[in-house]
């Protein structure tokens, strides 16, 4: 594996080496945690106390304050994972692969949360736990894509190959995500699916939007914190010498 030449690389690239990244991540994590907790508590306050009752969906609509940010991040984290995977393939940088590996579980977790909360919203609104609605179906397929990524990584013993192969899969998946989303929407209109949607844009009050955004930024900081913690674990697991140094032994 070729290493980045320090002479020709730009200064910020030094953070692309696991050795310098490890302590930097350690410094960032507490701030992210504090920010995440603060914003999520504030978001909960807006969502549960400030936001008015929806005239159509009653109090049941309050599920959107967790569902919508989770759904956003399930997709955003997949794309971010693919971006790091692509960066890894182009630069052949180990840290990029580790980032991609570290992002996947959090993305899958948010996908699962979006599915379960969507289903909890669907039961009172649609009268069924599951409706083949375009958004829910896309989330389900996204979960399958994450499962494929994990399965491929688990099946390959050689770490180097696992990194690269799953990176290719992540990129292929990322190209497919918009196509899948479009095809599912098209399929839904062909078969005239449910007309009520989880996000009704016109009726959305500004407070509701604000609550969702605050929550989303809180989830974002949470994701960063968790991903950084996981990257640190990856770094330690892959290199026992670095692990001893970083743990002060």
């Amino acid at each position: 594996m070729k290493n980045l030449d320090t002479k020709t690389s730009i200064n910020w690239l030094k953070y692309a080496s696991p050795k310098t990244f490890y302590p930097l991540a350690g410094k960032l994590i507490p701030w992210c945690v504090i920010g995440a907790v603060g914003l999520i508590v504030y978001g909960l306050y807006i969502g549960l106390f400030v936001a008015p009752t929806d005239f159509q969906q009653g109090e049941g609509y309050r599920i959107i304050f967790v569902h919508v940010p989770a759904a956003w991040f399930s997709m955003f984290l997949y794309l971010l994972m693919a971006m790091y995977a692509g960066l890894g393939l182009v630069l052949n940088a180990r840290l990029s692969y580790m980032m991609a590996t570290a992002i996947a579980p959090t993305g899958a977790m948010f996908t699962l949360v979006a599915l379960v909360t969507g289903s909890l919203w669907g039961k009172p609104m649609w009268g069924a736990w599951w409706v083949w609605d375009a958004r829910l179906t896309s989330e389900l397929i996204l979960l399958f894509l994450y499962i494929g990524y994990f399965s491929l990584q688990a099946a390959i013993d050689d770490k180097n190959r696992a990194d690269k192969a799953s990176a290719v899969l992540a990129l292929v998946g990322a190209i497919n995500v918009p196509i899948i989303y479009f095809s599912v929407k098209w399929w839904n209109t062909l078969h005239q699916g449910a007309s009520v949607s989880l996000m009704k844009a016109p009726a959305m009050a500004t407070v509701m939007l604000k609550g969702m955004l605050v929550m989303a930024i809180g989830f974002w900081l949470y994701s960063i914190a968790v991903i950084l913690i996981r990257v640190r674990c990856e770094i330690l697991e892959r290199d026992s010498k670095a692990a001893m140094f970083n743990l002060g032994l």
Binding site: G58, E59, I63, M109, L112, V116, L120, P124
Partner: peptide
């Protein structure tokens, strides 16, 4: 407003999953 199970269930599962992670 009668949606207790669904609303608290959603919030519980969301933050439960985050805590579990």
């Amino acid at each position: 407003g009668g949606y207790a199970f669904y609303v608290w269930g959603s919030f519980g599962i969301t933050f439960g999953c985050m805590a579990f992670e």
